[in-house]
């Protein structure tokens, strides 16, 4: 009863996701749970004012050190209305980048697994924030978002319920969705 029923019985949907490899990895990692333990890493250097540059290069997984194909750098800053120079996205916007990227990747993977061809997937995100929190004006106001709204426009050869189901399954399996919706223990050290 849980099996997916797509309205169109396309034999070969291609969303550019190698589902066989993902399912193979799942099978392999069930047998070798240690190899499933990853460490994601980033390093950040302060440049000036609120402007910093964060570099992502190496990570650890499948039991050994791994490297991205390229070094990726992300500048973050605050906008000019905060008396900053706006040299990059604000860090909170990068949180939205992470959420959108994660959910959208999940949608492609789930659709592929269900043999549904995607033609267009577009997400619009909006997060509310009362900056009285970060400014310390009102201690009852939290620093972070008071909510995030994600809206998807999806064109695919599937029924509305099937598309909604892909989006729901993507949230269920999303790391960033989990990181945002559940607490995470954070340890910050200096030295």
């Amino acid at each position: 009863m849980q099996k997916q029923q797509t309205t169109s019985k396309q034999a070969n949907a291609n969303n550019g996701v190698n589902v066989e490899a993902l399912l193979g990895a799942r099978e392999a990692l069930t047998q070798a749970p240690e190899a499933a333990r990853f460490k994601w890493r980033a390093s950040c250097e302060w440049l000036n004012g609120t402007h910093s540059r964060t570099t992502v290069d190496e990570y650890f997984g499948l039991g050994e050190a791994q490297k991205h194909r390229n070094v990726f750098q992300f500048d973050t800053d605050h906008p000019q209305i905060f008396a900053s120079e706006d040299n990059g996205a604000t860090p909170v916007e990068l949180v939205l980048v992470g959420l959108a990227g994660c959910l959208t990747a999940g949608i492609a993977a789930v659709a592929q697994n269900r043999n549904i061809q995607l033609r267009k997937v577009k997400a619009t995100l909006e997060a509310g924030m009362d900056i009285q929190g970060i400014l310390g004006i009102d201690s009852d106001v939290r620093n972070g978002f008071d909510g995030i709204k994600v809206h998807y426009d999806i064109d695919a050869d599937a029924s509305a319920d099937d598309i909604a189901s892909i989006v729901a399954q993507s949230q269920k399996r999303s790391a960033v969705f989990d990181i945002i919706t559940n607490p995470t223990d954070v340890t910050v050290t200096v030295g």
Partner: peptide, 19 residues
């Protein structure tokens, strides 16, 4: 502390019931 996933777990259950 409660997860912010309530809406999604409910829509998952609604969709599965409809299926």
């Amino acid at each position: 502390q409660f997860s912010g996933s309530l809406r999604n777990v409910c829509s998952l259950a609604d969709l599965k019931m409809r299926r």
